[in-house]
Design a protein around this nucleic acid. Structure first.
Lengths: 201, 201
DNA sequence: GTCTATAAGGTGATAGAC
DNA sequence: GTCTATCACCTTATAGAC
């Protein structure tokens, strides 16, 4: 029935446990339980909690942070279409994995480890994005704007409502989870409109 | 020299420790050390780690979440000035306390406790904000927009770059902390412009 | 590779003297 | 109120049998 190798089972169990509880909150026993094995085997495969965490974090990070910029390389779309597609796809990705951004942010803030490497490994082509934006400004299709500020805005508008879900639900929707979900459903269109309205020349 | 009462010293030490390490990562011993007392005294004043945390979280939460809407009550400002002031003051507040938003978000996501009360205690007047926005839409000063979406946008644009500092610095500024700080310095003006450009009719 | 048993050290919490 | 000493439990990690 279960053809997954032990290592795969461990990795999947660890990912769930770490994302749910963070590094400090995660328990090796809980990971073993989720994987249907015992603690000793965990250490046989990954020696320490730290090492296991590093593998998981790397995977999650590489899955989430990059490839955000892929859309912007396509030459068949204008800048506004690119933004629409990016926002839509990214929000969709986050809604399906709502705890991952918070996990990454929290662990990056509380770890002093050599995460510097992780960014280097991603080779995200920010320069491509910079050139694109600057060229659009020169062409006169969008207003003058710092490319870094713009990309932060796009990510912020997409990610924040999901990681701040409890606050948003509590403050804005009186604890009504359904109203929050309704807002989120319209979010991709709203965000794209909001951005485009702002930058369109 | 130190006129602070023991209770005050504990509270301040606990706030630092909890914000820095989260509930699960915080250590009662570390709090005692920071306060210059011993563990036993900690329990004498606050019985359990859980109870001490609740006091801290309440304080931080009440300090941070509300009073955001105060600006919008002033009648001597137009909607755009209100937004400028709010963004400027809120970003300023966050930059001075950069770890607090992440702390609140993380603890709210990982606690199932009866936080519902906290929101009720704040009696934030979201309706005031709703009425203000809707009235401006009717007057024709701003475009049609859902007040909830707008307030989320304003908070997201203000808060996100600070809580995602390691990622922003790593991905956008090649690890150069100074470039990140420079971006942040212009952030309040940029955000206000970005929002106003978007919603101005 | 996988298990049971256990070591070694930490952590929240309390007892009891002052 | 404040301290020292200590308990009871939990957590990571390893030893050693199979």
């Amino acid at each position: 029935m279960n053809k997954k190798s032990t290592e795969e089972k461990i990795l999947q169990a660890a990912e769930t446990e770490f994302i749910e509880n963070g590094f400090k909150g995660a328990r090796m026993q809980a990971i073993a339980d989720r994987a249907g094995i015992n603690k000793a085997l965990l250490h046989y495969y990954f020696r320490t909690k730290e090492k296991l965490f590093e593998v998981i974090f790397r995977t999650v990070f590489k899955f989430f942070v990059p490839k955000m910029f892929n859309v912007f390389e396509r030459e068949d779309l204008d800048i506004f279409e690119k933004i629409r597609i990016f926002v839509s796809e990214y929000i969709n990705l986050i809604v399906k994995n709502p705890h991952i951004p918070g996990f990454i942010i929290h662990e990056l803030s509380s770890k002093k480890s050599n995460i510097g490497k992780l960014f280097a490994e991603q080779n995200i082509d920010v320069d491509l994005f910079r050139r694109l934006i600057n060229s659009e400004i020169e062409k006169g299709t969008i207003k003058d704007i710092m490319p870094e500020q713009l990309i932060i805005n796009i990510i912020a508008l997409s990610v924040f409502p999901v990681i701040a879900e409890p606050i948003a639900t509590g403050v804005l929707f009186d604890g009504d989870e359904k109203k929050y979900q309704a807002m989120l459903k319209e979010r991709d269109k709203h965000v794209a409109d909001f951005i485009i309205n702002s930058i369109k020349a």
